[in-house]
C-alpha cells in the first residue's frame, strides 16, 4: 500500500520537460509587458499633447477674435463720432442760416 503510494507520488512528481517553445513564449511575454506599458504611456502623452495643442489653438483663436472685435468696435466708435461730427456740422450751417433769417427770440425763450 505504502509502496503504491510512493510510486504514485514519484510518478506525479517526476520531472517533465516543458513543451517545445515554452521558453521562447515566456521570454516573449516578459519582453512584451513593459513595451505595452510604454506604448500606453506614449499614447496618453500623444493624446495630452494633442489636447494641449487644441486648447492652445482655441485660446489663441479666442484671443485673436477678441482683439479683432475690439479693433472693429474702436473703428465703429471712431466712425460714429466722425458721422455725428459731420452731421452736426451740416445741421449747424442750417441752424445758423435759419437763425440769421429769423427775428430775435421772444421772451418765452423757445429757440430753434
Amino acid at each position: 500500500m505504502s509502496k503504491d503510494f510512493e510510486q504514485q507520488l514519484r510518478d506525479a512528481l517526476r520531472p517533465v520537460d516543458p513543451e517545445e517553445g515554452f521558453e521562447q513564449r515566456v521570454m516573449a511575454r516578459v519582453a512584451r509587458e513593459p513595451a505595452g506599458l510604454r506604448s500606453k504611456i506614449k499614447r496618453w502623452t500623444a493624446t495630452l499633447a494633442i489636447a494641449a495643442s487644441l486648447a492652445f489653438v482655441a485660446i489663441l483663436g479666442a484671443y485673436q477674435w477678441q482683439e479683432r472685435r475690439e479693433q472693429q468696435g474702436l473703428e465703429a466708435r471712431r466712425q460714429l463720432l466722425e458721422a455725428l461730427r459731420v452731421t452736426g456740422e451740416k445741421l449747424d450751417v442750417a441752424y445758423q442760416a435759419v437763425n440769421r433769417e429769423s427775428p430775435p427770440p421772444t421772451d418765452d425763450g423757445s429757440g430753434a
Binding site: A76, R77, E82, A83
Partner: peptide
C-alpha cells in the same frame, strides 16, 4: 469720408463709448 454703420455696428460702437466722457455721453 465713407461711413456705413448699420444697427449691428452701431451697437458695437456704443459698447466702446464711455458714458463718463461728455463727448461719448452726447453720442
Amino acid at each position: 469720408v465713407t461711413i456705413t454703420l448699420d444697427a449691428a455696428l452701431l451697437g458695437m460702437a456704443t459698447r466702446f463709448l464711455d458714458a463718463s466722457d461728455p463727448e461719448d455721453a452726447a453720442a
